[in-house]
Design a binder for these strands. Sequence first.
RNA 1: GCUCGAGUGGUGGAAUUGGUAGACACGCAAGACUUAAAAUCUUGUGGGCAUUAGCCCGUGCGGGUUCAAGUCCCGCCUCGAGUACCA
Length: 921
Amino acid sequence: MEYNHKEIEAKWQKFWKENNTYAVTENPEKEKCYVLDMFPYPSGAGLHVGHPLGYIASDIFARYKRLKGLNVLHPMGYDSFGLPAEQYAIQTGQHPARTTDQNILRYREQLDRLGFSYDWNREVRTSDPSYYKWTQWIFKQLFNSWYNKDNDRAEDINLLIKIFKDFGNTTVNAASDQIEKFTAADWNNWNLKEQQSMLLNYRLAFLADSWVNWCPELGTVLANDEIKDGVSERGGFPVVKKLMRQWSLRITAYADRLLKGLDSVDFSDSLKEQQKNWIGKSQGASLEFQVENHDLKIEVFTTRPDTVFGVSFVVLAPELSIIPEITTKEYEKAVVAYKNSTASKSERERQAEINNITGQFTGAHAIHPFSGEKIEIWIGDYVLASYGTGSVMAVPAGDQRDWEFARHFNISIPHIFEDKDLSGGAYTEKDGTLINSGFLNGLTFKEANSKAIEAIEAKGIGRGKTNFRLRDAVFSRQRYWGEPFPVYYEEEIPHLIPEDQVVTLPPIDKYLPTSKGEPPLARAKKEDWNVFQGERMELNTMPGWAGSSWYFLRYMDPHNENAFASKEKLDYWNQVDLYVGGAEHAVGHLLYSRFWTKFLADIGHLSFDEPFKKLINQGMIQGRSSFVYRIKDTNQFVSFGKRKEYQTTRIHADIKYVDKNVLDIEAFKSWRPEFENATFILEDDGTYICGQDVEKMSKSKFNVQTPDDLCEEYGADALRMYEMFLGPLTDSKPWSTKGINGVSNFLKKFWRLFHDSNGINLSNEEPNADELKILHRTIKKVAGDIERFSFNTAVSTFMIAVNELSAIKCNKKAILKDLTIILSPYAPHIAEEFWEILGMTDSVTNQNFPEVNENYLIEDAFSYPVSFNGKMRFKIDLPISLTPEEVKEKVLAHDKTPGYLNGQEPKKIIVVPKRIVNIVI
RNA sequence: GCUCGAGUGGUGGAAUUGGUAGACACGCAAGACUUAAAAUCUUGUGGGCAUUAGCCCGUGCGGGUUCAAGUCCCGCCUCGAGUACCA
């Protein structure tokens, strides 16, 4: 009887569905375990072989923990709002909800085929109003909160209003852009609109004019993490800076806690590093420079207050609003011209010209706060408006960019470091001794730094300060297919829709901005909205990361209509114990969800403030592309080995026409009409050899391997095991199907333990010591490997066990039964089939993972490798019970020993019990 | 440039705490079965010298620590990922 994976897999997938095998409920009696995959965006292309890598690993882990007796929550859902469905809607007019539903169906089909143990009763979709009702609810909570730095947590905005009434903002220590002080009298004299405007400076979700990354092609703003290399991550379109009134979330209030929290979670070093860099904490000081002949001050941030006497000019970001005020008549034209030239540059152009030093003198001067000297005020685009105060004190002696700027524009470079040569560049190390620095002379960095801060504070011109690179997160998108805001406007002041209501997406005629450039939602008429209040509704929608920032909480209680999840269930399931997903979300999703979790904890809804206890980033599976070489301006293709003799263009050839780099010429010709009459210059052996390269797997590169073909040919169990067998989960590797028949052979071999040529053939005999040893060694190794996420080595272990059992022709039920259980997380379908063959009626997923019995593993002998001067020469079988002294004697008495001793007396003999003997001569 | 990670046979990889380098698998070669092929099974497979035992070399390169280093330390090279005027 042959192993028929198609029949078996279909049979058990049906069984699991009908029996609701993977449904899970809260059970306080049992220890919980929450195993989560990053939910996918359901794209039109479907899953490729790279996607399931992480899903398979987490599924194995979840199934294993379940066998270990834990109550395992292992859900799946869809991040179903997003740009591609909307772009498709723009092109075709088809509602994005329809496209999304179709794609989800396809995803589901593919996922089901791989035999995952998801509890589909808990599926969530971010685009479902019953889900985004709660995304809106969280937004409302953010809107109604401010951050109290004294208590280091978010608090109710009503508390702040009360404080303003009694004290103004003079006593408040809040995370806010509001620096100017106002009194209780000021507050109480303001009208409602003025008060509301002021509150926006404090709310955690707030409207503000901010410099945003505008992508004209997509017609929307993008967050920093949605931009790669100066172009949009989706689509690769140019991005420019634009000042727009946008919703933002005050994530900066949480910067320090997001940083500190990293110590308490188990993420990879590189991921923590990325988050640290993104948050970008730097310590230094802020100080003010008085502008000459103006009642104006320029505040700068520096990490090197010790170098303050090296300041020879000040540079402002070209966007700063005070520039027109201070620019002198003489320089007005040049300054405006410079501002225009930088404003028109895209992010990408700015980055490309990073080595071009540009800037413009404003004609204005500032007064050095300590030396009293006049220094020039410049503008330059190497200073970013979005970081710090958008102004820097330039210290050419200690900062390379300042040095280059000074040299380029011929500004003086004061020497402030003893015995340091500044002719080739700035001295950026922190180990110099200061000179020409007034009261800081003779001091080192550390001494001078704190002394400078003291002096700055004493003078009342600044203070020690910590700055973060992290920006507040822009939360508006000028798109249709996203969560609508639960917000309406009156006199352009935003108000919330009442608690219990959800604002759903109104139908619109086209998914494009209006002719006036308003977002698509402006097309909806008043009656199209399910909720309409005030003068108008908010026309922006939320960004993609809104729904994904909390979905892991909704899985805990997905159908709750009264809360995003009940406190009870939140407490029970608690943190995600294992989170598996791609590293590309390192600074986006993973930072935002940590932020939301902390916020929800602050306002009393969660009893934990880090969402993910352990995170594993699966490696990327790259595609192997094949290339043919077309001779320029012809329809002739030259083989790889001879391509250098011609001028050629490299063209992707679909990998399905290529086997071991040899092109199937006939198939290739029929691929596309344009190749039909192509001619070929072949290698001398008459074949056409393709070039190859490892690239990201993508449709356009014709190197996509879908799991479907492989499932068809080898089965889901083989594919699951093969993806694990490829190597460590976290490594990136090019996809290759070369080895899949290896695991396929393994499954067949396992199958043959149960069958002979006549059918099922099992024995009820008691297992012997050898068989028990094989079994228990395997149990121990596999369990250990899963616990440390070493899935590839566990597969090897199964292979070894089956090889050994095959060699001794073991078909004993007692052995195969336990082996079936431990195999089931990896190959659940065949395991269920085996389980049934063994005469069991229940599902194998409901069994207990067998316990290791160490008694079966006790060895009474060990084959000692004997080394001479560290070189292994021979082995000697010795009883384990021997003392090191006895081992030594036995080794010295061995008949091969004298040959290696060569008549010399050993200087030293090292015996490590059950490991090694080393004789030093 | 900076930060993090990684370099092991023809290939994917293993070696969990410093203790037999190359498990397991692919590929390849030879053989068995077969009219033949596929499938399956058996044997071999790091390199070199000897082909019988045996010897030498070998985990990116150069040093070091140690009885013992793929593993630890110092210096370099290469590749990958992230980031990029962050004051």
